[in-house]
Structure formats: structure tokens, C-alpha cells
Write a protein that binds this DNA or RNA. Sequence first.
DNA 1: TTGAAAGCGCTAACAG
DNA 2: CTGTTAGCGCTTTCAA
Lengths: 350, 350
Amino acid sequence: MAKSNKRTSIADLAQELGLSVSTISRALNNAFDVSEATKAQVWALAEKLNYQPNSLAAALRRGRSNMLGVIVPHINGAFFPAVVHGIEEVASQAGFSVLICQSTEDVAREKKHVEALLKAQVDGILVSMSNTTQDFAHFERVRSQGTPLVFFDRMPDFPQACGVVANDYRGAYQVMEHLIAQGCRRIAHLAGPQTVNTTLDRFRAYQDALLAHGLPYDPSLVVPLANSGVEAGGAAMQQLLQLPSRPDAVFSAYDFPAGGAMQVLEERGFRVPEDIALAGFSNEPFTTMVKPRLTSVDQRGKQMGEAAVQLFLQLVKRSEVFTGQRIVLKPQLVVRESSLHKQKEPVLPR
Amino acid sequence: MAKSNKRTSIADLAQELGLSVSTISRALNNAFDVSEATKAQVWALAEKLNYQPNSLAAALRRGRSNMLGVIVPHINGAFFPAVVHGIEEVASQAGFSVLICQSTEDVAREKKHVEALLKAQVDGILVSMSNTTQDFAHFERVRSQGTPLVFFDRMPDFPQACGVVANDYRGAYQVMEHLIAQGCRRIAHLAGPQTVNTTLDRFRAYQDALLAHGLPYDPSLVVPLANSGVEAGGAAMQQLLQLPSRPDAVFSAYDFPAGGAMQVLEERGFRVPEDIALAGFSNEPFTTMVKPRLTSVDQRGKQMGEAAVQLFLQLVKRSEVFTGQRIVLKPQLVVRESSLHKQKEPVLPR
DNA sequence: TTGAAAGCGCTAACAG
DNA sequence: CTGTTAGCGCTTTCAA
């Protein structure tokens, strides 16, 4: 018995059983029009021969791969992993495999990933843009290929684009209202990249909230973050502390930099929140472990992922590529000690 | 001009240019034996028609997909994302696309993912086992299909298995030696699942180090963690604090539970490290943000990912499936204030 | 330097 | 209920 080193295929099963390949195929796919007896036979032999269907061949023939491409900027922190988790949950339930790629905030990589996914014949692409993405030609190409494209969290603002985002503006606005309600008057902002809707909205909300409450907008209180890491926040905080008139609160566009800022404040002997209140964005798990615990905004990552897949499923069902549909999730402000003046001893105005 | 809604294929290019499909194929693959002029023509038309190669078809024909499957237990925390990053770096450089799957610590999902990857004809599978994996039949199947299989971080201990791990034993032993050197005598352990080499080794090192230093092994000081999250650590710490004779140090098998323990200690008015010293494992970014900063062990995630792919590349080159080869990375103890008695004021023995 | 032809493994009409 | 047939889009001998 010459045991060839090739994988066993549908033809091998057919041969062995004296049936045609089509019958085997139907049996394996559990079609209506094949006898239970035959099915049983086929299943048994498949098991015995350790048959492994070749989904590439099936996809080629079918024209559908049942694969879903996902491009995220990165999987650091808790947010994107949560989204990915939500995506996998719903996608796998709908029979799709998920291909995850990281752009590492690099358009070039993002483009490459789009190409690769298209070449791999994915049935759809879910993407959260890198913050260096200014040119959208590669997305346009996806659309022109007829492949459904759904954005999440970070999306371009052209109207055909469809996707699911959190209401970052609202979340940030709530942070600001809270800080102002706590009595903060000189609120600084550690700003994320202004190239992408999310952090841009957080900044806009910062500005608008100041305006709405009759507080002056002082550009020197807005420090751009080099990245979303801890050190960037520390550096930004140092810069703020050198200002002739220091802020009494800092709203950071991300949690990790807020953590870095907290460290710097601690080192310099400032009290949080008495001297300077602090708030971040994302509700990372670590926010409950620092002292004081960090006020933040929950972005509903998992829900976002689930919604994105559902949107995709709608698109394929209707065989549409774009609908311009946009789902907006409501973020949740989570107030903790880093911004709560009331629970600490009152402090004299400085 | 009937613009069909099908994607443009190699045949379309051939038709348009009056060339054969084989020439087109060769031109696109930049083969030696096709004239520069023809290549240029083909490239130009491909560009113009927005031609997107179908890598499924190519893979089917070639018998290689140039895809690499990766199964991780989860992508929470910083460790697995770092590994994935390392994997992607090296894999993409070698021309492989990477398919990431999460088992979410569930064997059933792990099995499903293995199946799916095999069906997708990946050229190899890199896997870090779920902590519920007791039966290895699904891995055996991978091998029997002739698909290279490389483990990382968490791997079964049968000798043919090949993979790359950190020396968790050594890392944990170093933690223990450090704690003992700091004067700790009743050291507790928050234990991870004893089903998997990594946390098992951390526990063994804990025991062995006690023994080696003439300290008694007290089972009541070993508390199993429900999971690797913050709350689990808090719960475990509560349990330890109810002991008639409290520990003077806690070595947690993960960082997040150590963070949870720190919170509980803080709430209960214990000082870290004076009353109870604390150490974790993984060197998560948050370890530098808590107060006191948390002593931990760096697992070299990125390096591990890189090494895993290199191992895989070796396997395919030699067309072997298993070599039993095992790369062991040296972890690094990172001492911080949570376990440093010397840098704080001396405390009377209790 | 190019073309013709075969076929990777599977599915899906269309017949029987 | 089962078989025949014709590809999906690409690569790759083998000839010319």
C-alpha cells in the first residue's frame, strides 16, 4: 500500500469508495440530495484517512473565501484587542475566519496589508486607519474591486465610507464638563494626532467645552503627544510644568500618557487631583491600579467589533460595497479619584 | 466596452495584449526568460486595469500558500502582542502572511483554529497552547499532515515538539532569590494554572528556591489564581491576609494579579514593600506606573516571536516537520521598589 | 523568448 | 440519489 505523502483529497475518497467526486463533495457538505448511508460511508472514510478539505480550492471555485480581513493600527493596550475579540466572536459565528494585520501606524504597511488581503480573496475588510493615513486610494481600490469595506474607530470622513465609531467628541466633552464641574479652570490637553477622527474629536470637544463654559482657550496648554505611550505623556507633562502659569487639570487623549503624566507629577511633588486633576481616554485596566485611580472614558471596544462585523454582514447580504452607514456608539465616562476634588480635603486656591 | 464586474485576471491581460497566459504569468513573476519589453507592457496594463493577483489560485497550483498560522491564547496584556509583533516582522520579511487566531484559553477553539488553518493550507503553524489543553491529538494531526509546527512560550513536553520558550524557571528563581536576599522569609505565591509549562515552572522555582534556602514550604501560602486578571489577584491577596501568620512577600505568576494584590494591600493599610513585598511576572508597561513600581520579569516577547519564525523557516528549508529543537530565551529580572527593602526606611520586624 | 496544455482540489450545473 | 463535465485563476512542464 503505497502511502503517498500527499494529503488525501476528495478524489482519493471517491476512488476508495467507488463513488464520484461530486457525490463525495455533496456528502461532505451535507447536501440534501445524498443518501444517509453514503454520507455515513464518506464521513467514516474521511475520518479514517484524516481527510482535510482544501478551503483554498473551494474558495477558488466558489468565488468566496469566507475570510474576513482586519487591519488594526496595533494591538497594544486593551482597546484594539477588545475590538478584535468582538470581531472574532461574531465573525466565527457567521462562519468566517478572521485575518488580523497590524499596520503599526504606518500607511505603507496598511497599503501592503490591503493588497495582501485582496490577493487572498477575503470577502471583506474591516479597518481602523493608521494615524499616518492621508491618502485613501488604497481603500478606494478595495471598493472598486467590489469588496465590502467597513471602518471602525478611525475612519475617513468621506460620505460613502461606512463603519462604526465611538462618539469620541461626546466622551471627551463629558470629561471636560466633569473637570470644569470639579472647579478646574486651566485645563490642559495632551493631544493625539490631529490626522484621525478620534483624537481630533477629542481635541475639538476640549476646545468647544472651554468655549461653552466661558473659559479661555490657551494654545500653550495643548501639547501634542509624540505617541500613545507612557513616556510621551511624561514628556508632555514636563513641558506643561514649565509654563509660567500651570494648569490645574490635564485631559489626555489616551490613558497611557496620562499615567506617564501622573508619574511625573508624583516625582515633582504635585498632588493629584488637588494640585492637578487628571483624566485619560480608553479605560485601560491599569487605570484602576494607579494611585489615584485614573478617570477615563470607556470606548466599548468589544461592542464596536461586533457591530463592525454585523455591518459587514449586512453589506454582503445586500451585495453592496458601501452604504455610507455609520454606527455611533456611546462612550462612557468613568470618574475616578484622579479628577475628584470633593472626596479629598479641600485645597486653597493657588 | 462591457465592463464586467469580475476582477481582471491574467487571461484578460493576455487577451488584451495578444499574448498567452503563460507569458503574462511569467512577466508578472518577473521571470528571467521574458523580454523586458514584454514585461513593461504587461506591468503597464496590469496597473491600468488594476489587476490584483489571486493568491488563492497561485497557492492551489503551487501547493504553498505562503501563509503562516499563529494561535495565541489571547492578546491581552503586553506579552502576546509583543510576540505577535516579532512574528510578523520576521514572517513578512520572509514573504509570509500571518494569520492570527486567539484560542481564548479554550481547547475547543484551539482545535477549531488548527482545523481552519490546515484547511486554509497554511505552510506552518505557530502556537502557544491554551491552558486548558491536555490532549494533543490536534497537534499530532498537524504533524501527520506534514505541516511544520512550532510552539512558543507554552508548549507540551513531548520530545519531538519544537519551539521557543523563556526560561520561566530561571526567571522565577531569580525573583525568589531576590526576595530572600531582601530579607523575606514567608513568601507567598499566586499560582497560575499548573497545566502549562510556564506557570508550572514558576511554581516549581518557587518551591525549589525555598528549599534551597532552607525556608519551609507552606502550602497555605500558595493560592491558585482564577485567571490572570487584576481581580483574581485581589481575591487571592484577601485570602492570604486571612492567614494567622501573614506572608512578608508575594510572588505572583502574572503582573496583573500582582497589581490587584497591591490595591488590596493599599486599601487594608499595608505598606509595600515594608510590610509585604511584591513581585510579578511579565514586565507589563503598567508596572512602572503603579506606586510602588512593581518588580517583575521580562519575557522577551518580541524576540520569542522572531525566534519562532526562524525556527519555522529552518523546518521548511530542511523540509522537516519536527526536530525536537527547543530554543530557550533568558528572561530578565527587573527589580523595582515593590520589593526593595533597602531603599525604604528600615522597618521593625513584626 | 513565447505558446499550448495540463492540472492543483473543489463545486455546481445538468443529466440521468 | 448519483455521475459527467466544465471550469475557478494560476503555474509549469514541454515544445516550438
